[in-house]
Design a protein around this nucleic acid. Sequence first.
DNA 1: ACCAAAGTACGACCGATGTCAAACTTCGAC
DNA 2: GTCGAAGTTTGACATCGGTCGTACTTTGGT
Lengths: 105, 105
Amino acid sequence: MGRTPPHPEVSQFDLQQVLEALVDPVRRSIVAQLDASDADIPCGGFDIPVSKSTATHHFNVLREAGLIRQHYVGTSRMNSLRRAEMDEVFPGLLDALTRQPAKKT
Amino acid sequence: MGRTPPHPEVSQFDLQQVLEALVDPVRRSIVAQLDASDADIPCGGFDIPVSKSTATHHFNVLREAGLIRQHYVGTSRMNSLRRAEMDEVFPGLLDALTRQPAKKT
DNA sequence: ACCAAAGTACGACCGATGTCAAACTTCGAC
DNA sequence: GTCGAAGTTTGACATCGGTCGTACTTTGGT
């Protein structure tokens, strides 16, 4: 299982797919945590309220949409945000979403 | 039925709800058509590939998310984009989405 | 008064998606 | 080589959301 999974190229990025990935709160949380971190984060290192198998599913969706890049380090799968590439194709999008709106009363 | 339906206030805008509204291609198309128009557009005046009852549903979702404003003129329901208000709460979001990405081959 | 146009409301249907548990696979450490 | 940690895979399940048709309501025109 040490194979690197397939990542889409920038030229394949699709707005519909990216939005479908980002509409899920758990996945937006993952993106936000990556955006706030300066280092890569293993799948198990996120604060998300779902089981491991569900987490795997979310990471797959994010990777297939081009939002994250994954590579193995030992038995851990490390994740990083493809910020620059996303910004290149959909300028302003991640900015608008990670700029967490303070949920008022 | 000439009553004006309820519209959320700017302070009630919710990112999750806005994203759920914008993730549907038909609704994004409605938003794009409104954004490209300088006048209000009646429900029947949009180029969308769905039945009237489905269209009503989409307009409701958009209105409840705060994306559009609706008011009656005779028997027609006119729609306008709440651009400025959206930009105020989620700066850059509509820009990122209406800047339609040219879908290459 | 009557009729057509513009939407709405109500059900029904169905495909997609998020969720989990359980079994399995890999890799590193000892 | 054995074991545990980290993820994946598979299958099942439930819910949700988009879709439509039909019946209904309201409004404006004749």
